[in-house]
């Protein structure tokens, strides 16, 4: 399977230089071509071209209102829940245009999980939160559900903390734990890509650190696209970084390059904290 090969490739090259990782570069997950998006008359995304690779962490940074969250929500078409949204251009996901009429959003969102800014568990037990995705996709067998719940919670590194309280309400645990429950919930639908929309902005530093470590762990099996306000976070956890400004991609490169040797003056100004 290509995913397993990719994981092998990735772990082999893990300690090597950035260039060699480029040489064995994996296939792309998302290829965005000339994407434009309007909220009514507001032109929010302008001619976006981005090629997002498999098993990497891609960070999207930029000042408030630059369109980074909008772009992320376009990748699983959640943006369409906002009234009066218009798009043009293409987003190829694994070779298929997600805007195609016969591509159902439900199918797309089963392959692309999402973690939101504010932890948003359902007002149900921890178990039911994790089992929600599998259940809506038709899994009823209790034994299989049990296995999925355990695997997902382990995957989100929270199994040991909650294994004895699976039947408690998900709101009875801390905010940081809730966010990892939400990550586990996204893992339970066995996605290919995980989108994260500022997943640590509502969390304390220790919870943030745990999530960042988790992201490093998860990229072995998933492709992760993360929007963040925190530039240090982008530098710490991502392989590639895209800098958005006023709805445009100003620069997209390896994270090291973006942070040490940006080619655009505006990227440099933003990174060095001159605005934003």
């Amino acid at each position: 399977m290509s995913t397993t090969q990719a994981i092998n490739n990735r772990s082999k090259t893990a300690g090597l230089e950035q260039e060699s990782s480029q040489a064995t570069s994996t296939s792309s997950v998302y290829d965005t071509k000339q994407l434009n998006l309007w909220y009514g008359d507001n032109h929010a995304l302008k001619n976006i071209d981005l090629d997002i690779k498999q098993n990497e962490v891609t960070a999207i940074i930029g000042p408030s209102g630059c369109g980074k969250s909008t772009y992320l929500k376009t990748l699983n078409r959640m943006v369409e829940l906002v009234p009066n949204v218009k798009t043009s251009g293409q987003i190829m996901y694994r070779g298929r245009n997600i805007f195609d009429k016969d591509y159902s959003v439900e199918e797309l969102r089963t392959r692309v999980g999402m973690v939101f800014q504010k932890p948003n568990p359902f007002p149900k037990s921890i178990y039911d939160n994790i089992a929600y995705g599998p259940r809506i996709h038709g899994i009823k067998n209790k034994k299989i559900l049990d296995e999925i719940v355990e695997k997902s919670l382990r995957g989100a590194a929270i199994w040991d903390e909650v294994k004895d309280r699976l039947n408690e309400n998900a709101y009875s645990i801390s905010g940081g734990q809730q966010q990892r429950i939400c990550i586990a919930r996204a893992l339970a639908i066995e996605p290919d890509v995980i989108l994260m929309d500022e997943p640590t902005s509502a969390l304390d530093p220790i919870s943030t650190l745990k999530i960042e470590e988790l992201v490093q762990e998860l990229k072995k099996d998933y492709s992760i696209i993360i929007v963040t306000h925190n530039m240090q976070q982008a530098a710490r956890i991502s392989d590639k970084t895209a800098f958005f400004l006023n709805g445009e991609v100003i620069e997209y490169d390896n994270t090291d390059t973006i942070f040490s040797n940006p080619s655009d003056k505006r990227t440099e100004d933003y990174i060095s904290g001159r605005f934003g």
Binding site: N76, L81, R109, T110, N120, Y132
Partner: peptide
């Protein structure tokens, strides 16, 4: 946010409403 979470996992409108 609860609607978002449900839709984000590929639930249909009806599943989100009922569950």
């Amino acid at each position: 946010e609860l609607r978002d979470a449900s839709y984000g996992m590929g639930a249909t409108k009806w599943q989100t409403i009922v569950r």
